[in-house]
């Protein structure tokens, strides 16, 4: 007994060591390519090179002064913010209907609303191109907004309905008994109480739109391109370190937003 205990501890620690090693390996493989773009973006050469010979912010300046890059960035931001506004409102209303309103139909509506999560994006993109060409919104600002909204709304519905299930429904009844209408009860009590979930849903919606390349690839015309689409073009025709700059900025921006979402989720009652 006394002899077996240390040997078991030894085998456990060896297992742990292997686990840590492999987990570390996986993390390095996942993160390394993303981290590598940072030094590449600081390289002075006209082409992508690693490791860089020296460090310069030249390509950051290039990005900020190139009208095409700036236009693409602003377009992506405008689309992203519109999608965020639209899907947060629509998704929250859908979540309220699923959790509170529809007694039997909830699961069906839930399945329909979250379908874009499981349909391959490329299939969706082709379908949306055919449909939008017919009704003449392909390539327009609102075409992007609607197409991205359909992709983003499931995240809002899932996050908000999870918060609604956790929220004690009798609180809403209490508000009604105290003189509120159903709408007032939701507006004054339910929505403020689930604010962190609303913000998290909004962030996911924004990122879904902002990161999307597939749908934009099909919908974009020559003049109005979103940032990911512009990156594709750059990659195809003249690979410059500006690409690495955009990749770096995009990564930092996304990380910041995800960090914010994570912080909101863990500090729910803060």
């Amino acid at each position: 007994m006394a002899a077996s205990v240390p040997s078991r501890q030894r085998s456990v620690s060896l297992g742990r060591l292997l686990l840590v090693f492999f987990a570390g390996l996986v993390l390095v493989f996942l993160a390394l390519p993303t981290i590598v773009v940072v030094p590449v973006s600081l390289s002075p050469t006209e082409y992508l090179s690693f490791p860089p010979e020296s460090l310069t912010l030249r390509w950051y300046g290039e990005f900020l002064t190139d009208e095409k890059w700036v236009r693409a960035t602003l377009l992506s931001l405008r689309i992203g913010l519109s999608v965020t506004l639209l899907t947060t409102i629509v998704g929250t209303m859908a979540a309220l209907a699923i959790v509170r309103g529809l007694r039997g139909g909830g699961p069906l509506v839930n399945a329909l609303v979250t379908a874009p999560l499981v349909i391959p994006t490329i299939v969706y993109a082709i379908a949306i191109l055919l449909f939008f060409s017919k009704i003449g919104v392909s390539g327009s600002f609102w075409g992007f907004v609607f197409a991205h909204s359909a992709l983003a709304v499931p995240y809002v519905v899932l996050i908000v309905s999870a918060a609604l299930y956790r929220f004690d429904a009798s609180t809403e009844l209490a508000a009604q008994s105290l003189g509120a209408s159903r709408v007032q009860a939701i507006w004054h009590v339910t929505l403020p109480a689930i604010r962190p979930a609303l913000a998290t849903g909004a962030i996911f919606a924004f990122l879904t739109s902002f990161d999307d390349a597939t749908v934009s690839f099909f919908l974009a015309n020559l003049n109005d391109v979103t940032l990911p689409r512009k990156m594709f073009e750059n990659l195809q025709f003249f690979v410059s370190p500006v690409l690495a700059v955009v990749a770096t900025l995009l990564t930092l921006f996304t990380l910041a937003l995800f960090g914010a979402a994570q912080w909101l989720r863990t500090n729910r009652n803060g």
Binding site: D168, S170, L173, A174, S177
Partner: peptide
């Protein structure tokens, strides 16, 4: 509707607005 009945209600789990 409930909001127009002028009735006060106290719930088991208090149902205060957090």
């Amino acid at each position: 509707p409930a909001g127009k009945r002028e009735i006060g209600m106290v719930f088991q789990r208090y149902a205060l607005f957090p």
